[in-house]
C-alpha cells in the first residue's frame, strides 16, 4: 500500500504547483512552492534517493524559498495573474 502514499504525495505536489501558479499573492505562491519542493524531497526519500532528498529539502525547499522571499521583498508582492 505504500504506493498509495506516494500517489498522495504526488497529488499534493501537483496541487501545490497549481496553487503556486494561480495565487495572486507572490509571497503565498513562494510558500506553496516550498511545499512543492518539500513534496519532491519526500518522494525522493521514499524512492531511496536519500542524499538527493536531503539536498532537495535543504536547497530546493529551504534556500530557494529564502531566495524567493528575498526577491519578493526586493520587488513586489502582487501579481496580476
Amino acid at each position: 500500500m505504500s504506493w498509495l502514499i506516494e500517489v498522495f504525495l504526488f497529488v499534493l505536489m501537483v496541487v501545490s504547483a497549481l496553487v503556486a501558479l494561480r495565487s495572486r499573492d507572490l509571497l503565498a505562491a513562494a510558500v506553496t512552492l516550498s511545499l512543492f519542493s518539500f513534496m519532491a524531497a519526500v518522494i525522493m526519500a521514499s524512492l531511496g534517493a536519500i542524499d538527493v532528498a536531503f539536498t532537495e529539502a535543504v536547497v530546493g525547499a529551504g534556500a530557494v524559498g529564502v531566495f524567493n522571499i528575498v526577491a519578493i521583498t526586493l520587488t513586489t508582492r502582487e501579481s496580476r495573474d
Binding site: 504547483a17 503556486a20 501558479l21 507572490l26 505562491a29 513562494a30 512552492l33 512543492f36 530557494v64 526577491a71 519578493i72 520587488t75 501579481s79 496580476r80 495573474d81
Partner: peptide
C-alpha cells in the same frame, strides 16, 4: 505574464 510566475514555472 508575471515574471516571478515564469520563474516559478521554470523551477517546476
Amino acid at each position: 505574464r508575471n515574471l516571478m510566475k515564469k520563474v516559478m514555472g521554470m523551477s517546476m
